[in-house]
Design a protein around this nucleic acid. Structure first.
Lengths: 332, 332
DNA sequence: TTGTAAGCGTTATCAC
DNA sequence: GTGATAACGCTTACAA
């Protein structure tokens, strides 16, 4: 059943059918009703492919993430899909993993499928060397690119981010205020937002008179058990710390495990903070003080700005929200 | 830059260009090279829309889930996307929520976009009344439908599931064997797999001589805190229990919180088990004994069967894997 | 307000 | 092997 069949049965031309289909004003109420009736009767659905070809758009947006099963990214995907759907855009999901080459090829894949725009979730997509970010700029020369939690300057690129620097600085200030004397920072990677976070931590330490030539930030790639054992190792190495500020809630969960294992009283003798305000922060007992970096807000904003771009309006190329400390039980 | 431009520059017809594009055998090596060179020079990419129109396929599969931010579903999405991508299919993601009407309209949406097949994640999609499942059957009349963790009989419908009945029966048998005398079961909903689980629990109880006219399975909709407070309420109501078998890891996490709050010794005096073997089971201290229901395995199988269907082979309409008990610290 | 007809960029079916 | 040419089902000037 195609547009010709409908036009014939309704006794009009295909152009009129098309107009009805696209809600054109220039159709008499009578004709419209007639056509709609025929469509209904024959339960006609327009062919999406032919439509795309004519319009050169499929009303589809690509969502690129490194790992959709990561609790944080999964949240973002959920909100993005919801907002896109509200605006009748479909979501094409691609999980790239963490290799640059993969990311490039996936982005190209989305481009070759002619998506209307691309959303990059997470700062994993922004590399340190400009050369390695070129593929994003190239993509932006064709379609608008939105980056969540990462920043890249360029035409047709829009960054929506949380002020990770301030969030971690505030959090570190907090634990100092609550009596911590030797906090350490635990991170997974030093990507774009990772660098902001650690800088916030270090600046706060400096302001509180800590000797930051003394190393107090440690890399902890891997899962929460790994994080826990890394802390045990630090302890065994004679490094003393009374607080762990973690770059995400999973690492923080590992820190809580460490504290429980060592029979440290939390938060009295040992404080822990996380990041992301994910379900993981609520799973531990005691529950972990964490930072709400406004995923939902960021996602809603990203999609809304995207719609603006589609309507030839120009949203700000950079939008930054402040995070919120969500005080729970692992800080005094 | 389209196929005509290329054909002209290469001095061949568009048919030949198309053949090269599609890797046809019937092109001389010389011509192929010539054409490929011209394509390369002009960095030509075929138009996906025109292609779809001709082939009546976009090489795209729809993934329907109720909530992509749910840890379990997020995992499934990750594996499915990965497997589909391996077979060079793209994934269109839709999160439907839990309302029947929404689910129907989303499925229709995917259909109207002419996806090549549909994957339904989770038993949330299967209702108790056949009438409410009709929309799935209708979809199956157009494209193959794959259901993960749910079962529906019908042409062109393939169910891949975990033996939830057996898993919960074995788990209940286990806690009985380890000394539990009054286990209770905590569930979220009684959808398809929910019913299997509770039946496994009840059958084991009966076999162990428990009076199952006495209610010992309770609904706990909501988050882990809600689950915790429901248990407190049960306790306050004078219902005694020495073990909580939960329908998922989040509920189990709530049960652990309850036990810690009550200063019950886990697992000596109080046992807890979860379901899904998600990261949540590892977050609690003590870590939660849970059931690995083989998400990855199920996803790999689903996609592989889908590819078979695309090649006109006929995979089994129902594939069931057994779950695995993953013993951790909340059972003796 | 409606209809005609020319695209859109492929694939696929024929001949040659 | 290769080349015309007709689909594919829609959108959209342009005419009427």
């Amino acid at each position: 059943m195609n547009i010709y069949d409908i036009s014939q049965k309704a006794g009009v031309s295909i152009a009129t059918v098309s107009r009805v289909l696209n809600g054109s004003e220039k159709v008499s109420e009578k004709t419209r009703k007639k056509v709609l009736a025929v469509m209904e009767e024959n339960s006609y659905t327009p062919n999406a492919f032919a439509r795309s070809l004519g319009l050169n758009s499929m009303h589809t947006v690509g969502i690129l993430c490194s790992d959709s099963s990561d609790v944080y990214q999964a949240q973002a995907i959920y909100y993005l899909e919801r907002e896109l759907r509200k605006n009748s855009y479909a979501s094409m999901l691609c999980c790239t993993g963490y290799e640059l080459l993969e990311k490039q090829s996936y982005l190209n894949l989305l481009l070759s499928r002619n998506v209307d725009a691309v959303l990059l979730i997470g700062s994993h997509f922004i590399e340190n060397s400009p050369e390695e970010n070129r593929y994003i700029l190239e993509a932006a020369s064709k379609i608008p690119v939105f980056i969540l939690n990462g920043e890249l300057k360029g035409d047709n690129i829009y960054s929506i981010l949380c002020d990770d620097y301030m969030a971690l600085k505030d959090m570190t200030d907090l634990v100092f205020a609550r009596g911590s004397e030797s906090p350490i920072y635990l991170y997974r990677t030093l990507n774009y937002s990772g660098q902001k976070k650690i800088q916030g931590f270090l600046d706060s330490c400096a302001e509180h008179g800590l000797d930051i030539s003394q190393k107090n930030a440690f890399s902890a790639p891997g899962d929460l058990h790994k994080a826990c054992s890394i802390l045990e190792q630090l302890d065994a190495d004679g490094i003393s710390f009374d607080c762990v500020l973690a770059a995400d809630d999973e690492l923080a969960t590992g820190a809580v495990k460490y504290a429980l294992k060592k029979h440290l009283r939390v938060p009295e003798d040992f404080q822990v903070t996380g990041y992301n305000n994910s379900v993981l922060a609520a799973c531990s007992t005691p529950e972990i003080t964490t930072i709400d970096n406004r995923v939902e807000y960021m996602c809603v904003t990203a999609v809304s700005q995207m719609m603006q771009v589609f309507q030839k309006e120009i949203p700000p190329s950079r939008t930054m929200f402040s995070g919120n400390i969500v005080k729970k039980q692992t800080t005094k």
